[in-house]
């Protein structure tokens, strides 16, 4: 694992929505990415859970509303697990 959490999350978001990596930054959110609707959000959550080996509660899933929010939540989860 050489890339930072931010870079990994950006790549996952880009992959899930079929976009290029440089189209995604920390501010990317459902308002800015048209494909980011509810089923796609579920795909994104599952992708994050699989990639980082974490599990989000229903409340947490509702809060994952931007790349930045995801990165913060993943950091929190990983430090809890450590």
């Amino acid at each position: 694992m050489t890339a930072s959490v931010l870079d990994r999350v950006r790549q996952i978001v880009a992959d899930v929505f079929g976009l290029a990596l440089d189209q995604i930054d920390a501010r990317s959110s459902p308002e800015l990415i048209e494909a980011w609707e509810s089923i796609a959000h579920l795909n994104l959550v599952l992708s994050l859970e699989q990639a980082f080996g974490v599990s989000f509660t229903p409340d947490e899933i509702a809060e994952l509303v931007s790349v930045e929010a995801i990165v913060n939540k993943v950091h929190m989860k990983l430090s809890q697990a450590a």
Partner: peptide, 9 residues
């Protein structure tokens, strides 16, 4: 992985 599936498709 689930994420990569989006890219592949």
């Amino acid at each position: 992985s689930p994420a990569l599936a989006g890219f592949i498709v």
